[in-house]
Computed example of a mutant assay.
Amino acid sequence: MHDTTREVRLAAALVEAADTLADGFDTDDYLRRVSDNCVDLLAARAAGIMLIDHRGRAVSLTASSHGADVALDLLEAQHGGGPCLDSYGSGRPVPPVSIRVAHADSRWPDFTERALRHDVASTFAVPLRRRGTLYGALNVFVPTLPPLSESELLVAQALADAAAVGLQNHRAYSQYRTLSGQLQEALSSRVRIEQAKGMLAERWNTTADQAFVALRQFARRQQLPLDRVASAVVERVLDSTQLRQNDD
């Protein structure tokens, strides 16, 4: 039995939003899929996500596949103010607003002027937030006038919250991957240096400490990383006699 209710589709969208722990993760594609799910679940004209930095400046604009031109134009029109910036600034949803009423009240003039040209009747926005951290806002563009039911706003907020969690998790994942790579490289470098010390100490019939001094002095005089010199010794690219010739 195929259950196509909105509850099931919302559950699927939330699961999809959680899937960010991957090396091939693409932020724009991810936010586009979140916007697409928003359009599908809310029967909207278009939707888009604006990521905003701590200074309140837009750093990324992503539109839904459906109505992409409309969404991008309306996101770009918010440089002087709009639902996304208001929602981000307050950390709270901007409830559904009639575009004509907002235009008559001179609220977001550039944004509302463009929205009227696109035949958008109303709009609302919800913040992308996670435990006090704000990433931006999700803006929904609707072809009908308000009021929408409270559940519509809750659905949009659920998608936005899931997107914020997904973004936060991926950033943490990327940081851990980077740190892991750095630690692995540091460990590999240490192993190569120890191997080089051992090889030189055996060849020269000396101590490992004396071999290390020779490695370090050669690296300094040649202005080379110590790990690179050690690798050359291990791979037998560097003649060990060269190190002794430069050893004080």
Rank of each mutant, 00 (worst) to 15 (best):
A160G: 06
A43P: 01
R57T: 15
D53N: 15
L159I: 00
A158H: 04
S60F: 01
V8I: 14
D247N: 14
G181Y: 08
L51Q: 04
P225N: 04
D239H: 15
G166K: 03
D239M: 12
L224I: 09
N169S: 13
L238T: 02
S149M: 01
E150G: 15
D3T: 12
S98G: 11
P93Q: 05
D239A: 15
M50C: 05
E76K: 09
A201L: 00
E16D: 09
T123W: 06
Y173M: 02
A186R: 13
D105T: 08
D105S: 09
A186H: 10
V234D: 09
I49G: 01
R57P: 02
Q184R: 13
L187Q: 14
Y135G: 00
L61Q: 08
V70P: 12
V140N: 04
V70K: 10
N139Q: 14
T206F: 01
N169H: 12
D28I: 02
G81H: 08
R129S: 14
G81Q: 10
E235P: 06
A156T: 02
L226Q: 07
D36E: 06
G198N: 10
G181C: 05
A46D: 05
L159F: 00
N205V: 00
E152S: 13
Y176F: 06
A160W: 05
V15C: 02
I52N: 05
R117I: 06
F25R: 03
A232N: 12
E235I: 05
Q242C: 07
V237N: 13
V97G: 02
V191D: 14
S149Y: 00
A13Q: 02
R190H: 07
T178P: 01
G89W: 09
S231C: 03
S149F: 03
L42Q: 03
L41A: 00
L21Y: 03
N139M: 12
R45L: 12
M1L: 05
R236M: 14
V97S: 12
R236Y: 10
Q168P: 01
A71N: 08
G198K: 08
G81E: 11
V233P: 13
L134G: 07
A18I: 01
F218E: 02
R131K: 08
F111E: 06
D119K: 10
V70Y: 08
R131Q: 07
M199N: 04
R57I: 11
A158K: 03
K197Q: 14
D105K: 11
D239I: 11
V15K: 02
V120A: 08
R177V: 09
V213A: 08
D73N: 13
A232F: 10
H118N: 13
L72S: 12
L224A: 14
P83W: 02
R6I: 06
D209N: 00
V237D: 14
A208T: 05
Y176L: 15
E76P: 05
Q242E: 08
T27H: 00
T112P: 13
V155Q: 00
L243P: 11
Q175F: 09
A63T: 12
S106H: 13
A164G: 00
T20N: 10
Q168C: 03
N246V: 06
D29R: 13
D69P: 08
T207A: 01
G198F: 07
N205K: 12
A12K: 09
T207M: 00
R45I: 04
D247A: 15
R9H: 06
D40R: 11
L21V: 11
G91R: 10
N205L: 08
L215A: 04
P127D: 04
E185I: 01
L187R: 15
A125G: 12
L74R: 06
V140M: 04
H66M: 08
P109M: 07
D227R: 13
